[in-house]
Design a protein around this nucleic acid. Structure first.
Length: 552
DNA sequence: CTGACTTGCGCC
DNA sequence: AAAGGGCGCAAGTCAG
């Protein structure tokens, strides 16, 4: 398949360098205002677009109604390759390597700034692409790495499309919900009346007339003055207390949180024209998970999800994977016993059925403890039994933890590397018998060492889970496009939300059943891509709904 | 005053 | 004795 490298040449033109499979290169100068038409034309036959950064190219193409099938995102690929233990990093060295290291994605908030002085314009995408291809070709694990890079780049396309489309959101539903819980929208700077009433009760109950319940420090002093033995003001802590003022305080905290995080200001800021508009940030987390920017898109509370409602004549298809990470762990470790338990729709029940544990609660706490490094209490007690039953799965996370504690780098199945640890505990000089850094007590260093081990333990599972999800998303994106017939991305079934192990597709109602089918097929395909013939299942919970709140 | 940090809580 | 991973966000707090 031909690759076309796009290079900005000032604001007015783009240079398109088409690399044919036989090695020849054809260079075309395209005026910027003709780029969308050029891309649309070349998309008629398979091609891979190579560009410095999807967030710098794709939004404008989408705005012009042009969708691309595949790309190579040099910024994201660079980030993966620079850290991968599968890569000879010296092959990536060039004059502008540090520039690629530092390159940040852009969001619409920056858009006004970046054409004038964009650091990306000081980078050479042609040379970077050559170096990346050479590094990939020289890797002993190039098949896995190539899959990771393709998935990462597809994710970048999906993210831009989701950002472009926005999540359907009915402001009037959201407002009704707020008014019902908090009272009418107050004047700016005032508390809603329900909060005011609760505050009166709280002040009275704790004999603290001027108390500002939004101040943790002030609140803590008031609680302690009332004789309550607390060291913080978390809801979970307060729930343990027996005091007549606590119910009102808990209610206040809950409603206050709703107001601050997803209240009227949130609506004003993030919802426009019936869409919640935030930015998905592929590769925003070291493990490979996505981050988000704006409106807290990764933590939309279930409380306000009723407002996420499909357009008239459309539906949401909401799908999530049950227990993604334990299944991924079974697959990547080749643990047949755990994979057997994963044959069940509920992996934890599968563990009970096999006799590994007695109750589902035990299974859950044990597995989560194994993946997060919890060794206290219940989950700690489960470990010997789990280790006997699932030696390869538990062995894999234990090895990752030990490697992290030594200061070593660990990697995901497809080769994403963990960061190199910094900090006094990780100084290699300590191993060479040199005195440890002044002023850092041994206990502190040991605690930091174990904390890093928990991070690397989780990294391998969370990161491989993110790879599975990326493959799922990438394959689903293409299947949805093929379902659609004609029209732009948001006129066909299209992704509107993605969060670690869950997707939401917005689709014309008559295609909803087809979308369900494609969601399932793409999940199966993701399993094949990562684990080949190894028999580990990824069952989905799928719902066709009008509102996001109806799912799950 | 701004900016950096802390606290607390939402999501997976 | 203590020992649970990853985020984003808003408000409060505090130093400069």
């Amino acid at each position: 398949m031909n690759r076309i490298v796009l290079v900005r040449r000032g604001g007015a033109a783009v240079e398109a360098r088409e690399h044919a499979v036989d090695g020849t290169v054809e260079v075309t100068r395209v005026p910027s205002d003709e780029l969308a038409g050029f891309v649309a034309d070349r998309e008629l036959t398979p091609v891979r677009w190579v560009w410095d950064d999807t967030t710098r190219w794709y939004p404008a193409l989408l705005a012009a109604g042009v969708r691309v099938e595949r790309c190579a995102d040099l910024r994201l690929s660079h980030a993966v390759l620079r850290r991968s233990p599968f890569v000879d990093r010296s092959l990536l060295d060039g004059d502008d390597t540090t520039g690629w290291d530092a390159l940040q994605p852009v969001t619409a908030a920056d858009a006004a700034l970046f054409p004038l002085d964009d650091p990306a314009d000081r980078l050479d995408p042609v040379a970077a692409h050559d170096r990346q291809q050479a590094a990939l070709a020289a890797s002993p694990e190039r098949a896995r790495l190539a899959l990771l890079l393709a998935a990462e780049s597809s994710g970048a396309l999906a993210a831009a499309e989701m950002t472009h489309a926005g999540l359907p959101w009915r402001a009037e539903v959201h407002e009704r919900l707020l008014t019902g819980l908090l009272g009418p929208r107050p004047a700016s700077g005032r508390r809603p009346e329900v909060l005011e009433r609760l505050l009166v009760d709280i002040r009275e109950a704790f004999a603290a007339p001027g108390l500002n319940a939004d101040s943790p420090a002030e609140l803590l002093r008031a609680l302690q003055a009332a004789g309550l033995p607390v060291g913080d003001t978390r809801s979970w802590t307060l729930e343990q207390l027996d005091h007549p003022g606590i119910p009102a305080l808990l209610e206040y905290k809950k409603l206050s949180r709703l107001l601050q995080a997803n209240g009227w200001n949130w609506l004003d800021t993030w919802v426009r024209d019936g869409r919640f508009r935030s930015w998905f940030v592929p590769g925003g987390v070291v493990t490979g998970r996505w981050a988000s920017n704006g409106g807290g898109a990764l933590s939309v509370p279930t409380q306000v999800r009723p407002a996420a409602t499909a357009d008239d004549g459309w539906r949401f298809v909401v799908a999530d994977v049950a227990q993604l990470e334990p299944r991924v762990l079974a697959g990547m470790s080749g643990d047949t016993a755990m994979a057997e338990a994963a044959r069940s729709t509920d992996l934890y029940e599968g563990m009970v059925a096999s006799g590994a544990v007695t109750t589902r609660a035990e299974a859950k706490v044990g597995i989560l403890g194994a993946m997060y490094g919890g060794t206290r209490g219940e989950s700690g007690r489960m470990m010997p039994r789990l280790t006997r039953r699932y030696p390869r799965a538990i062995g894999l996370v234990e090895a990752a933890a030990r490697a992290g504690e030594r200061g070593d780098v660990v990697h995901t199945l497809l080769g994403r590397g963990s960061p190199v640890p910094t900090g006094a505990w990780a100084e290699r000089s300590a191993e060479l018998g040199e005195p440890p850094e002044e002023g850092v007590p041994r206990e502190d260093r040991d605690r930091q060492r174990r904390a890093w081990g928990r991070f690397t333990r989780n990294f391998v599972v969370q990161g491989t889970g993110a790879e599975w999800a990326l493959c799922w998303l990438a394959d689903l994106r293409n299947r949805l496009w093929r379902l659609g017939g004609t029209g732009t991305v948001d006129q066909r079934p299209h992704l509107v939300f993605f969060l670690h192990d869950e997707v939401v597709v917005h689709t014309p109602e008559h295609l909803a059943d087809d979308v369900v089918e494609e969601v399932r097929r793409s999940a199966a395909e993701a399993g094949r891509l990562l684990f080949g013939g190894f028999p580990v299942d990824f069952p989905l919970d799928v719902a066709v709904v009008r509102s996001w709140a109806e799912a799950g």
